[in-house]
Every structure is written in structure tokens, then in C-alpha cells.
Design a protein around this nucleic acid. Structure first.
Length: 412
RNA sequence: CGGGGCGUGGCGCAGCCUGGUAGCGCACUUGACUGGGGGUCAAGUGGUCGCUGGUUCAAAUCCAGCCGUCCCGACCA
């Protein structure tokens, strides 16, 4: 992509209503635009990041054997009456009336819908276990939205729901999902911890959260790496780890949560299947969430400096940024830059070229703000010496390489 | 929902107390010079001062109500 074709620009000043550094940087670099409190548009570069996270999650979920579906965002209130969650959720539900005055809500989660699907289509134990997931926009009318996409009302979430004949099968899938989450957050290059947690409104008994470690996190977690123990402090009633080990405390951003729900939903919604002895049983259920859009903010909280964002390679909107400098009076500079750009594109590299008519300072400042991992600097000065500079956004490490060896170096 | 801010060109702010021509920085447009870390000079574009009502000869400014938005607390990926 050519920056000269991109009409948006960056900002030196963040809007005064942005408090968190990730929120400020997302607005300054034009990743998102606020429409209303807790409701954001994902602009082109922000959307690229979102899609990368989504793809990573999708790939690992598919790998785990889960099946992707897409459920409706709008849900009839009657389903929620069955589980008595219409009252429990209360004002968190964004309520909608259709033209016939039938009451709906914009889905904040989908236990009821998926359970309804199962009771209409699954009758035999032979159809279990099964795990359905979706990546979808949710709406929760939060009491207080804050910190940009970190706690938005409208947000993108991966939610998965598994159904099992018995507790053993549920526990097996729960473990598998835990492993899948570990893989996902490692691939996203996040510093995270899996912790014991409470279950909240969703219900059920066992649950674990996945927290990205960050000063700005809304939760406090405690862990003891020696004992391989970690928990949300909400769940702790002791100052020590189970075997007496010393706890380390940190703040965390909850980006994933897995639950064993048991038969709460299958019972209240009368989902039953025949087991091998011909007896009706209520399946056991698990649910597994990942806050896709929240991860964008969490990743920035963990990867930035005073100049801007420093994207992990796995989620950067582009792999390489070519910065063209001082090309006004020497068309060979742009020619060389475009040649590199084309070759990279042909090789399937996601490359952005700053071919705008801007001064060096502006381009460097924007490059640092946008945080693409690798910068390739093509300028008059280098071209005259048949050299091109490659720098790392994260380490600032610079190396001059011969002009005709650039592609080779970039592929290493 | 309780407590506290804030609403003035796209962004950051001043002006309000003490009513009388709407201002600054950034950004944007044009030109010249410049050209490897947000450059200089010159000339410009852009604002029903959140909304409604009230007071007044006159309201961004005073009063009332409403709306929006942010922060602190109770809830959540």
C-alpha cells in the first residue's frame, strides 16, 4: 500500500478525553475513531491489526477442532426469560423493539442462542462432544465505558460453546481450550498469565482468566511461578500460594476467560440427548471467550515507547515500511524505492511505502508512531553510495546494506 | 446510579470571573525558499462558541433546564 493514496493523517496531540496511552496512540495514529461513548469505527490500519488477531484466533480454534458459526447479533427476549438472565443482566442489555413491539436485545453473549440451536438439532450422545465458536460484534451497555476499545460497549469477541455427555468430557475440552489459549497468546507475542477466577453472571463453577500483564490493567492478579500458581486476587483468601510460596502481584488486562458451566443452561432450556443406554440426559457445557478488540489495546499497553506504538510482528498492520527520503530532485530515489516495494509485494510481503511529499522529520515521526517493526530507508544520500538502511523500530538497530541485497536481508 | 470535571474551526487550548468586532498553536490551501528527525517566510480556507429557553439595548460570557463526554466508585471480554 502507498501512503500517498491514504487520505488520513496522524496527530501530534491526542484528544483530551483519552487517558490510557494505548487509547491516545490509537487515536493519534488513526487506528480508530470514536462515534459515541464506547462505540468506535475501526479505520483501515486498525482493522488490519484486528483482522490479524482474528485470524490467529480462528486458526488455532479450527486447529483445536472447534467449528465456526455466525449467530445473529439480535436475540429475542423470550430465550433470556427461559434462563432468567433477562432480569439478571438488566440494563447491561441493549433492548430493542421491533415494529410488532416484540422485545429483543443486541447480544452481549450467546449461551441461550447456542443452547437453542443444540436442542433443535442434537438428539443423540453420538453427536457429542461438540464445540461451536464465532467471532462477532457484541454489545454490552456497560455502566461506564472507558479507556477506548479496552472497555467498549460494542466490541469484537471470539466466543465458543462446547457440549458434553459428562463432566470428564467437559474437563477434557476445558483443558484443550486452555492449551489453545496459551498457544494463541504466545503467537500474539503477549506477556500473559493464566489465573484462577470467579465466574460472575455467566454461571458455573470452574473458570480461568487470561491476563495480559500491564500497569493499566483493571484487575489485580497474584502468582507464584515456583508453584505454577496464579489467581485473580478476587478469589484469594490467603496471603500465600497454596504450598506457602511467596506471591508476586501484578496488574492485568483480562483478554480471555474460560468456564465450565455444567448443566445450568441445558437444564433451564430443556436441552437433552439420549445416552447409550437410551436415557435422557442434560449435556454439560463449557464456554470460552477472547476479547479480540481489547487485545489491540492490550498489545499497545505492552508494546510502546515515548514515540509511539511498537507492534509485535504477529499483529502489525504491515511487516515493512519503506521510507522514501529526499527524492524531489532525483527521480532515481523513488524508482529504487518502488522497485523494492514491488519486489516485496510480489513475494507476498505486507509492505507500506511512505511515498508522500513530506520532509524526513515528518516521515520518521509518523513511522515511529505507527510502529511497523521494520523500516527500510531509501534516500538520496544512500542511493549515491548504493546503500539502503534497514532499522528496527523496537531496538533502533540500524544496518546499511548494499542496494541489490536489500530483499535478501529483509527476508532473513 | 452517586461524586467531580469538561463542551469555543479537524486536534490541543485561551477568552467567561468583570456582557460590547471570536483569538492562539498544530493541521489544511497557494507560492517561494528548503530537503536524512515534526523547517522558514508570505498570503489564505475553515467556527450557528453543545442545545433550548430566560435576563439584557446587547450573551461564548449571566441564569435555568436538557443533551453529550471524560474521570473516581459498584459491574464485565
Amino acid at each position: 500500500m502507498k501512503l500517498s493514496n491514504y487520505p488520513l493523517r496522524t496527530f501530534k496531540d491526542a484528544p483530551s478525553d483519552a487517558e490510557l496511552i494505548s487509547h491516545q496512540l490509537m487515536l493519534r495514529s488513526g487506528l480508530i475513531k470514536k462515534l459515541a461513548s464506547g462505540i468506535f469505527t475501526w479505520m483501515p490500519f486498525g482493522l488490519k491489526v484486528l483482522r490479524k488477531i482474528e485470524q490467529t484466533v480462528r486458526k488455532e480454534m479450527d486447529e483445536s477442532g472447534a467449528l465456526e458459526v455466525l449467530m445473529p447479533t439480535i436475540q429475542p427476549s423470550e430465550l433470556w426469560q427461559e434462563t432468567e438472565r433477562w432480569e439478571d443482566y438488566g440494563n447491561l442489555l441493549l433492548q430493542i423493539h421491533d415494529r410488532h413491539d416484540r422485545l429483543f436485545c443486541y447480544g452481549p453473549t450467546h449461551e441461550e442462542v447456542i443452547t437453542d440451536i443444540l436442542r433443535k438439532s442434537v438428539k443423540s450422545y453420538k453427536q457429542l462432544p461438540v464445540n461451536f465458536y464465532q467471532i462477532q460484534t457484541k454489545f454490552r451497555d456497560e455502566i461506564r465505558p472507558r479507556f477506548g476499545v479496552m472497555r467498549a460497549r460494542e466490541f469484537l469477541m471470539k466466543d465458543a460453546y462446547s457440549f458434553h455427555l459428562n463432566q470428564d468430557s467437559l474437563e477434557e475440552e476445558y483443558e484443550k481450550m486452555g492449551q489453545t489459549y496459551e498457544t494463541i497468546f504466545k503467537k500474539l507475542e503477549l506477556n500473559f498469565r493464566k489465573v484462577e477466577a470467579t465466574s460472575g453472571e455467566i454461571g458455573g463453577s470452574v473458570s480461568h482468566e487470561f491476563h495480559v500483564i500491564a500497569e493499566s490493567g483493571e484487575d489485580e492478579i497474584a502468582f507464584c511461578d515456583d508453584e505454577n500458581f496464579a489467581a485473580n486476587v478476587e478469589t484469594l483468601d490467603s496471603k500465600n500460594a497454596p504450598n506457602g510460596g511467596e506471591l508476586t502481584y501484578a496488574r492485568g488486562i483480562e483478554v480471555g476467560h474460560i468456564f465450565q458451566l455444567g448443566d445450568k443452561y441445558s437444564k433451564s432450556m430443556k436441552l437433552d440427548v439420549l445416552d447409550s443406554s437410551g436415557k435422557n440426559v442434560n449435556p454439560y457445557m463449557g464456554c470460552y471467550g477472547i476479547g479480540i478488540s481489547r487485545i489491540v489495546a492490550a498489545a499497545i499497553e505492552q508494546n510502546h515507547d515515548e514515540k509511539g506504538i511498537i507492534w509485535p510482528k504477529a499483529i502489525s498492520p504491515f511487516e515493512i515500511l519503506i521510507i522514501v527520503l529526499n527524492d524531489k530532485n532525483d527521480s532515481s530515489v523513488m524508482d529504487h524505492a518502488l522497485k523494492i516495494y514491488q519486489e516485496l509485494k510480489t513475494d507476498g510481503v505486507e509492505v507500506l511505502i511512505d511515498d508522500r511529499d513530506e520532509r524526513a522529520g515528518v516521515k520518521f515521526a509518523d513511522a515511529d508512531l505507527m510502529g511497523i517493526p521494520t523500516h527500510v530507508i531509501v534516500g538520496k544520500r544512500g542511493i549515491e553510495q548504493k546503500k539502503i538502511e534497514i532499522t528496527s523500530r523496537r531496538t533502533s538497530e540500524k544496518r546499511d546494506v548494499k542496494m541489490d541485497e536489500v530483499i535478501k536481508h529483509l527476508k532473513d
